[in-house]
């Protein structure tokens, strides 16, 4: 059967069938990885939710939420809205991407990244301008924990989307020049884009869930 010699420093010979098999494995790995990543973050945020409900129910020294302190609702709502906007834009971009309209995906994606960065900036700024001291009570502690974890989550999501868009901008020309590479790469890239969008769906869910508990239900 025909064999394909790979570049010298790769050190092995691969058949087209093997290349296709490994390419498919890489696509599946991305799909699985995004789900496992969601699992990792889900357990981390489950720990935060546990802290919230545990401290709320124990209400040690009657200091769960003294003086009904609340984090700035307007800022929190803006952060949540920006995250939802990012997710919506990425979902729209994905739909266009599937229709091979990569320009729409580019525009929607970069806008989503900008929106995510704005949410990130607002989340950081909110921490510097809180109307309470961290040690006021259980609620204030958990809120600061949430803010820190939300920053980590948003950084992860924005980083993923930005790197995809940056890579797309860089490889677009190369991909069209080599149809075989383009075939593998586009399939792999498509799974990457889908996985990233899926992950942003999780970010949106987390944002809405904790927005309700920190800003609305208290």
């Amino acid at each position: 059967m025909s064999q394909v010699r790979v570049p010298a420093d790769s050190g092995y010979v691969a058949t087209p069938e093997e290349l296709a098999y490994e390419a498919r494995a890489a696509e599946n790995a991305l799909f699985t990885a995004s789900r496992v990543m969601i699992g990792i973050f889900a357990f981390a945020f489950a720990a935060l939710a546990f802290a919230y409900f545990y401290l709320r129910s124990t209400n040690s020294a009657g200091l769960w939420r003294p003086h009904d302190v609340t984090a700035p609702v307007a800022t929190g709502t803006a952060i949540m809205a920006l995250v939802l906007a990012s997710t919506g834009l990425l979902a729209f971009g994905l739909r266009q991407f599937r229709r091979n309209d990569t320009l729409d995906w580019d525009v929607a994606g970069w806008t989503a990244v900008a929106s995510g960065l704005l949410a990130l900036g607002l989340q950081c700024w909110e921490l510097t301008d809180l109307p309470f001291s961290p040690s006021t009570g259980g609620y204030t502690s958990v809120f600061i924990g949430w803010a820190v974890m939300d920053i980590i989550l948003l950084v992860s999501g924005v980083y993923w989307a930005e790197t995809l868009l940056a890579r797309h901008a860089r490889v677009r020309k190369a991909a069209t020049e080599d149809s075989r590479s383009a075939g593998f790469a586009s399939a792999h890239f498509r799974v990457n884009v889908e996985s990233c969008t899926y992950f942003w769906g999780f970010i949106a869910f987390v944002s809405v869930f904790f927005w309700v508990f920190f800003y609305i239900a208290g």
């Binding site: 040690s60 020294a61 200091l63 003294p66 961290p134 009570g137 259980g138 502690s141």
Partner: peptide, 27 residues
């Protein structure tokens, strides 16, 4: 991840003055 989050809470208690694990302050 649960351990990592618990450690982050501990670091926050010791650095920025939250009270996750301080019963006298609602933790």
């Amino acid at each position: 991840p649960t351990l990592a989050v618990a450690c982050v809470f501990g670091i926050l208690d010791r650095t920025v003055g939250t009270s996750f694990y301080v019963a006298a302050h609602g933790g």
